[in-house]
């Protein structure tokens, strides 16, 4: 009898524990759920709807169907911003990844003063994009700037950098390399996570440095590379602050990024419907490239063992 009642007790306790668990979980998640609905999902749907309207804050909204999207593909300035954004993303991200990886490989060699070097390379990532932009505006200054003065030493008359429509976008890409520190730290952590016995085994099998790099380091690091490149691409597609502050999209719109284009349409011309269509094109591009990248990952990303679920 005692056994029966304790069993019933046990079942009851399990049951109430389970209900309490579910209630507690949803209570804990309530702020996030409300926030998600109010500040993410709601606006997301709203902005898709808005992209089919001619809309501003003041007059009535007119349904235009795909009109905004049709206008967009015929807007030479938008197409230009698309091209500029693509160039920026597909040049700065691989270049940044290569730089970060190279620095990480160096610092992973048990070099003396690792902490100091790590800090030196990472520090530019700590400060705001605005501060970086303001500093580099002066560095790129054609007359008194650091770069042209350095070039003068080796006898080269430097270009006008951010004031020259050919050089403005490359200038922003060069500047972006200064802030690869965060990626470098991730690669460094990834490198330190590679078990040394793999290198020893490869060494015993007669693999030289190059082969050890290609057949041990790169495969073992590929999940880190993958993660980094995806995150950096998403960020690069949204580049804004640099061109807004340094060149204001110029000269001759040569640094007009998609987000800067969107910002102007939305907040300078209050064309909210049109700007929403820009946002959705940007979103679609980001989703496409992310999915493409994830799908391709099975070809080149090596996961040692299975991912843990919990």
């Amino acid at each position: 009898m005692a056994a029966r009642s304790s069993l019933a007790d046990f079942v009851k306790r399990r049951f109430t524990q389970r209900t309490e668990d579910i209630l507690t979980a949803y209570l804990c998640l309530l702020p996030w759920i409300i926030g998600f609905l109010a500040f993410t999902l709601g606006p997301l749907v709203f902005s898709l709807v808005l992209s089919f309207f001619q809309a501003d804050l003041f007059t009535r909204n007119i349904f235009v169907g795909f009109g905004n999207y049709i206008d967009l593909v015929q807007d030479p300035l938008f197409l230009k911003s698309l091209r500029i954004t693509a160039v920026y993303a597909f040049v700065s991200v691989p270049l940044g990844a290569a730089t970060a990886l190279a620095v990480a490989l160096l610092l992973n060699q048990k070099v003396v003063g690792l902490g100091v070097w790590r800090t030196v390379y990472y520090l530019p990532s700590v400060i705001s994009g605005v501060a970086v932009a303001v500093l580099w505006m002066q560095i790129f200054n054609p007359r008194m700037g650091l770069i042209n003065n350095a070039l003068k030493v080796v006898g080269i008359e430097g270009p006008s950098w951010i004031f020259d429509s050919t050089w403005a976008l490359p200038s922003l890409i060069i500047m972006s390399l200064w802030a690869v520190g965060a990626n470098m730290l991730l690669y460094l952590a990834g490198l330190q996570g590679i078990p040394t016995h793999l290198y020893e085994a490869a060494k015993i099998d007669g693999a030289n440095v190059g082969r050890r790099f290609w057949h041990v380091t790169i495969p073992m690091l590929s999940p880190t590379i993958f993660f980094n490149v995806v995150i950096s691409l998403i960020a690069a597609f949204q580049f804004f602050t640099q061109s807004f502050i340094m060149t204001n999209g110029g000269p001759n719109n040569s640094t007009l990024s998609m987000v800067l284009f969107l910002y102007r349409k939305a907040f300078q011309q209050t064309r909210f419907g049109y700007a929403s269509a820009v946002a959705w094109v940007l979103f679609a591009i980001i989703i496409c490239f992310t999915l493409l990248f994830i799908r391709s990952s099975s070809l080149w990303v090596y996961y040692a063992g299975e991912e843990r679920d919990e």
Binding site: T24, L29, P43, L44, S47, F237, S276, A279, F283, I286
Partner: peptide, 28 residues
């Protein structure tokens, strides 16, 4: 805590990290 819908909700959390903020900017 184990609760129904946990995995789906967690995927939603992760995907909001990938969401470019420009998409919700104008409605907000």
């Amino acid at each position: 805590i184990r609760f129904p819908g946990r995995d789906i909700l967690f995927i939603v959390v992760l995907s909001t990290m990938m969401l470019p903020r420009q998409v919700t900017l104008i409605p907000l």
